[in-house]
Nucleic acid binder design. Structure first.
Length: 339
DNA sequence: ATTAATGATTAGGA
DNA sequence: TCCTAATCATTAAT
């Protein structure tokens, strides 16, 4: 019972400001007897609240309007917002600052590099040009394939953009809708602009995660397309017979050291009308495959050795003792031993 | 339909 | 950087 007067004091403090809008008896309590009068006032207010459902709709509306127009209303609203802000912030103030998602950045960079998300036409052609350069100038036959590739890429690009736009639009629509709703509600319950802002950012986060999924699947599609069209392994053509002969000739005549110099590679590349890189690939493959199974290549080795021997003897002393290709000559045996 | 051959790519080492 | 070794993906042969 001694608790009561103290609690009442704080309430009375608000009431004692003497607003014209407050019920008459509440102001009367200030001057009169201390304890009993206020208890009476509280009882009245409670009574009013209990019977509020009995009031007519118009009456309630009028009361609400009066409350909204009250000159202390903005201040009270701010106080409530502040209190709410504090509690909300204390609940989840930690996860406010979000660093830019590295995953998303990776996807963005890749889409940009592939010319999907870049400027309208320039990016695509640049990527195609880079791809053409990377595939090696094996001939003029790949222009058709590249146009096919470009067509598919632009298809992906178009889908990506329309989807992205759809998401963007949906996000904006939803955001404005929510904002309007919140603004409307902020007339009747404490919602600060900051809170609306936070809500908007939450919505944006949700939508951007959806966008990330779109980016992810677009990246996958591009990767598949790339491997489908741009991987040189997929459109491999065997070298022509003549080129293979030239390469084998060099290989077997340098069997003790089958590592052509840069100049030798260039020469071979020119003679075979392939690139230096292809020459290097060929020698790399040949060396390892020869080493792995010398027996299998024995016949081939004999053949080329014999051929060079024949051409050599023919060239030097127009001789007529033709070596049969099936009989290994001394040069071959020598080379085998050295290896 | 399988299998071998072959050109290209990749990881990892000196 | 160039090499080896393993592997991939296609072509040629069976």
């Amino acid at each position: 019972m001694d608790e009561q007067p103290r609690l009442m004091h704080s309430h009375a403090g608000v009431g004692m400001a003497g607003h014209p809008g407050l019920p008459q008896h509440m102001q009367e309590g200030t001057g009169g007897t201390d304890g009993d009068g206020r208890k009476q006032d509280i009882g009245d207010i409670l009574q009013q609240i209990m019977t509020i459902t009995d009031q007519s709709l118009d009456e309630a509306q009028a009361r609400k309007h009066a409350l909204n127009c009250h000159r202390m209303k903005p201040a009270l609203f701010n106080v409530l917002c502040e209190i709410k802000e504090k509690t909300v912030l204390s609940i989840r103030g930690a996860q406010e600052e979000e660093p830019p998602d590295p995953q998303l950045m990776r996807l963005d960079n890749m889409l940009l590099a592939e010319g999907v998300s870049g400027p309208e036409k320039g990016g695509g052609s640049a990527a195609a040009a880079a791809a053409a350069a990377a595939s090696g100038g094996a001939g003029a036959d790949n222009s058709a394939e590249h146009s096919d590739y470009r067509a598919k890429l632009s298809q992906i690009r178009q889908i990506y953009h329309t989807e992205l736009e759809k998401y963007e639009q949906a996000c904006n629509e939803f955001t404005t809708h929510v904002m309007n709703l919140l603004r409307e509600q902020s007339r009747t319950r404490p919602i600060s602009p900051k809170e609306i802002e936070r809500m908007v950012s939450i919505i944006h986060r949700k939508f951007s995660s959806i966008q990330m999924q779109l980016k992810q699947s677009t990246c996958e599609a591009v990767m598949i397309l790339r491997s489908r069209f741009l991987d040189a392994r997929r459109k491999r053509r065997n070298f022509n017979k003549q080129a293979t002969e030239i390469l084998n000739e060099y290989f077997y005549s340098h069997l003790s050291n089958p590592y052509p110099s840069e100049e030798a590679k260039e020469e071979l590349a020119k003679k075979c009308s392939i690139t230096v890189a292809q020459v290097s690939n060929w020698f790399g493959n040949k060396r390892i495959r020869y080493k792995k199974n010398i027996g299998k290549f024995q016949e081939e080795a004999n053949m080329y050795a014999a051929r060079t021997a024949v051409s050599a003897t023919n060239a030097s002393a127009h001789g007529s003792q033709a070596n049969s290709p099936s009989t290994p000559n001394s040069a071959v045996l020598l080379l085998q031993l050295q290896k």
